[in-house]
Design a protein around this nucleic acid. Sequence first.
RNA 1: GCCGCGGUAGCCCAAAGGCAGAGGCAGCCGUCUCAAACGCGGCUCAGUGCGGGUUCGAAUCCCGCUCGCGGCACCA
Length: 788
Amino acid sequence: MSDYDFQAMQRRWRPVWESLGLFDAGASAGQRRSLVDMFAYPSGDLHMGHAEAYALGDAVARFWIQQGYDVLHPVGWDSFGLPAENAAIRRGTHPADWTYANIETQAESFRRYATSVDWRTRLHTSDPSYYRWTQWLFLRFLERGLAERRRAAVNWCPVDRTVLANEQVIAGRCERCGAAVTKRELTQWFLKITAYADQLLDDMAELAGHWPAPVLTMQRNWIGRSPGAYLDFGPFEVFTTRPDTVFGATFLVVAPDSPLAASLCTSGQRPAFDAYVSRVRGMSEIERTTADRAKTGVFLGAYGKHPFTGERLPIWAADYVLPGYGTGAIMAVPAHDQRDLEFAETFDLPVRPIAGFLDGLDTELDGLDQEAAIARVVAEAEARDVGRGGVTYRLRDWLVSRQRFWGCPIPVVHCANCAIVPVPDDQLPVLLPDLRGDQLAPGDVSPLAAARDWVEVDCPRCGGPAERDTDTMDTFVDSSWYFLRYCSPAYGEGPFEPEAVRRWMPVDQYVGGAEHAVLHLLYVRFFTKVLRDLGLVGFSEPFRRVMTQGQVILNGAAMSKSQGNMVDLGEQIDTYGVDAVRLTMVFAGPPEDDIDWADVSPAGSVRFLSRVLRLAADVGTTPPTGPGDLNLRRNTHRLLRAITDLMEQRRLNVAVARAMELANAARRAVDDGLAADPATREAVEALSVVLSLFTPYTAEEMWARLGHEPGVARAGWPAIDPELAAERTVVCALQVNGKLRARLEVPAGITADDLLALALAAPAATGRTVTRTIVRPPHLVNLVVSGP
RNA sequence: GCCGCGGUAGCCCAAAGGCAGAGGCAGCCGUCUCAAACGCGGCUCAGUGCGGGUUCGAAUCCCGCUCGCGGCACCA
């Protein structure tokens, strides 16, 4: 290990690389490729999770660079957000102070970590030159009717004192702070992602195979498309996925906290209803949506009319019906639906078997399967004008207003005369005021609303007194288009330069955590489709290929500060060096699997790296002489082909294992006295290039020991000789009745006839009565014999 | 409850119908050393969660079960 001085290597090569400009996009004449890592939120320094993601993404980017592609590999920060605001309150400073200090820390760590990024692309979303265009895009959404301000019951986090998007509520709790979320009636901005629900769903077909299957499944679940029918029951329509059960409907239920319930309630039932509603409203989201609760409800005194039989059906209000889904009202079919049955039993309502109800249509339904019955009922409902086929989605519109300071201001003003007036494009950006410390502390109104100097403006339209919108945008808006900005980070005429976007986008490979499967990854897809409809981009999906990495855990548990089981990235790097940490991350297992740091061995990585370094020293700079060992050459080319294929498939852990084989083969050659053989030099040079994807410092050091100028990162992927890579002879398994009986060394190109002849001549086959032969040249012969 | 993914040596993981072991960790033995650690060399270690099926042949394909992980969930 003494030989492996990673500190010295890190000190030595970093300045050399930076002077070479190895990773500037546009520096190569090759075909263009783009690799984008999910950008970081600047809270403190980089941690183990970043280290894993960047090691994986960087290996792919560097692989492309070695192959001669012109690679865009940008870097940036998602720099708006609540933690900065909380830090500013604690410290009496501006959120920018904390944010930009952290960005500098992370940028330094990035450089040390030796990722192949083009630093000229560097951006951060809290930069006015960035958020100017976030605002500009918001106004385009507004013009198209895709941004809308409306009153709605929204998720409210009492701790963070802001509203949350549905996607940010996990099991009724704030995903950030864990506080129980409550509902509030507020007027808020929404982006109409539901208008794109079908496209978001249908376009997944082209992502299949290129995106992780679990991500697509989660998005499908999240969108939750349910085909069914809307049926008219008199005072209102209900939505049902099972119109074929309509003849079992015995009562109707509406959500108590909906305008519908209030308007239907008769005066006699009013006191009971009011009491019930206030009880329901007092419940937290968690209580409300817990299953296996006893059913509660109240009769409204009103009746609906069955669309087919005309029967009078009582209307109840019950909290198991949710106001936001479908029409907020259901037909209850207790014979078919468990929840309806429980309700009917609780309140002694009739349960009617679905079959056997006397009606012309009903008897026709008896013989049909479910699908046909549904179609029949829908057709009949349409013919009688009492309903229609329809689809409902679980997906809600995206609530983007936040009552916080450190975010992108929503660029509209509210004028008494003109209502909502967009800030003219040429007056963007609407800059945040300079608030700090206590001015950001939670009060009765949000910090921006309290900044009266900032709020009070002249109306851009009529010039009269007006007020700025005091909400800021969800930071997921900022991150929904940053990948496009990377193409032209300094562009001033629009959010991005069209030509640059045509050159680099969509992203060829996106890399990041699976925890964003239904937040960020869904929002970005939505944004991309809107930008396409705005004529700003020419594609519908932002990322051709996505790789999600697992988490780094410890002893089976997620690392967290409160648990005190954090592994500190800086300490790991100080102990083992950047390369060993990177190698450990990549080698630990398939990229998408979690890495348990207790299961892996950075010390083992150090051992391997010191071995390859010694290997390079043993080969050294002496000019190669000799014939070139053919077996080693074959092995080298076979392994290179395997590594190439594995990199294409993103099976990086196996690629590293093959590189280790290459190292072992070269070691054996050196120990056998072939240090000066051209084949050995070829193997070790190839190994340096392969390792440059994973362990850039060590690879560069090897390259130097082999007598090359710095810049192994652009040395070029080794050419693979197909002749050499092909197996010349293989070991063929000889099976008798499926059991291995012998091994035969045969030429790789052997014909079936020759192979069979060889097999029948083998001792294992003599004296047996062969009834059948299975010959699969060159790997296997199976003889089926009769008798003992 | 519904949907998805996964169970291979003590551990992390390979084997994409054809010899279950590529690579690593740990362990053991040897070697180096005055000694120890490091290094180096070698070795041991599973019949693939369970039960069926298809096949000449199954870790791999199919069916059922089980355990683990993740998502959705009073969503009509």
